[in-house]
């Protein structure tokens, strides 16, 4: 099956789904690892220690990026649904969304990676 070459709307929708599912999976894992505390503090600490690992730090940036994209894109769609007249500008609105995304990602990436660089 070939790929339909939809525009920005199609790709942002796919990203919206992927990030949504990604965040949901993380949330379930996080509920599980937090629940380990019922087995005693040792198990809990061992798992939480994992999150300090550099690989997890980098994955955490991915998590933040997913939540941020999902939130901004959700806002864009909500705005379009409420002010239907703005739909003519859905492409520039998506570009604005991407600029906001980048502006937020730069300092956050720096803050999250700094402990690793020490």
């Amino acid at each position: 099956m070939s790929r339909y070459r939809g525009g920005i709307g199609q790709w942002s929708w796919i990203l919206h789904r992927v990030t949504g599912v990604g965040v949901l999976v993380f949330l379930c894992l996080h509920i599980l690892d937090t629940a380990l505390v019922v087995l005693g503090p040792d198990h809990y600490n061992a798992v939480i220690q994992l999150y300090r690992h550099p690989v997890f730090r980098v994955m955490e940036i991915g998590l933040f990026a997913s939540v941020l994209f999902h939130a901004l894109n959700g806002l864009r769609i909500t705005i379009l649904d409420v002010w239907v007249g703005l739909m003519r500008f859905h492409k520039p609105l998506f570009q604005l969304e991407m600029i906001l995304f980048a502006v937020a990602m730069v300092p956050v990436t720096w803050i999250m990676l700094r402990p690793l660089l020490r």
Binding site: Y4, G6, G7, I8, G9, Q10, W13, I77, L80, D81, M87, H90
Partner: peptide, 9 residues
């Protein structure tokens, strides 16, 4: 409808 805009294109 998920406001994807493929239809408009």
């Amino acid at each position: 409808c998920r406001t994807i805009f493929n239809c408009t294109d």
